[in-house]
């Protein structure tokens, strides 16, 4: 049960339900964890939880991804360089409010696109320089697959993030740095008790994380739930004139 021999995994945005579930999967395999997020005080709970449950060393790291100037120091502080980085940062925002506020639009773009891509870029470069097989897992969203009235500012940032990951994957095809895009749909949290949610389209964070690990083991490029893949393929295929009028 000790992490001896296994390489560390870095989880950025370690407080989200999905990040926690993926972190738990890596810890259960014996990987030491590095948890990074804003406000390490409350990360301490996350760290004790993971280390007691899985018997692996866990460290916490203060990081605000939108503080671009601080990123290099953060990366320098990671010792050793992680074998895998999971990037799960982002903010949903509030579409109606944000649409009227340029500052809010900028903040959404920074939290979901500028911050994460800058960090990932620098990390990928360091990983490539290390030479051996490593991986970056970026958590995007199905909201990026097609702009919808409900959340198109967030969706646009996530679309940019997906395009970024796709390009990075191509760039690193020969460097040993594997880049995987993950797109959660509705992931049921303990918040939702299940009676009203579209059952067929939801999964628990734990089940979702297991799917992510299976995809990671296969070195898949993009992971999303089969059900969502089918749905979004249909949605994406709708001609704009028709899509415009749907309520989806």
């Amino acid at each position: 049960m000790t992490g001896a021999g296994k390489a560390s995994v870095l989880i950025v945005g370690a407080r989200s339900d999905i990040a926690r579930a993926i972190a738990a999967q890596f810890a259960a395999r014996g990987h030491p964890l590095m948890l990074a997020a804003r406000g390490t005080d409350s990360l301490a709970r996350e760290a004790s939880d993971m280390s007691i449950r899985y018997g692996v060393p866990v460290t916490t790291h203060e990081l605000d991804v939108t503080d671009l100037a601080a990123q290099a120091a953060f990366l320098d502080s990671l010792d050793p360089l992680p074998v895998c980085m999971v990037c799960a940062v982002g903010t949903l925002g509030n579409q109606d409010r944000d649409a009227k506020d340029p500052q809010a639009i900028r903040a959404i773009a920074e939290a979901n696109f500028v911050g994460p891509t800058t960090l990932i870029e620098a990390m990928a470069t360091r990983m490539a320089a290390a030479g051996d097989a490593r991986a970056i897992i970026g958590i995007g969203s199905v909201a990026g697959d097609r702009g919808r009235a409900k959340n198109y500012i967030y969706g646009a940032a996530k679309a940019g993030f997906a395009a970024y990951l796709s390009g990075l994957r191509q760039k690193h095809v020969n460097t040993g740095v594997h880049v995987m895009t993950v797109k959660p749909g509705f992931v049921r949290t303990a918040m939702t008790d299940g009676m009203d949610l579209p059952g067929a389209l939801t999964s628990s964070p734990q089940d979702f994380a297991k799917g992510v690990m299976r995809a990671y083991d296969r070195r898949a490029t993009v992971y999303y739930d089969l059900r969502w893949r089918v749905l979004m393929t249909v949605i994406r295929a709708l001609p704009e004139r028709i899509f415009m009028r749907t309520k989806f």
């Binding site: 709970r45 004790s48 939880d49 007691i52 449950r53 949290t189 303990a190 918040m191 008790d193």
Partner: peptide
């Protein structure tokens, strides 16, 4: 108030 996701183990 849904409490089941506050499920961290703090010490043992």
């Amino acid at each position: 108030l849904m409490g089941a996701s506050r499920d961290r183990i703090l010490s043992f």
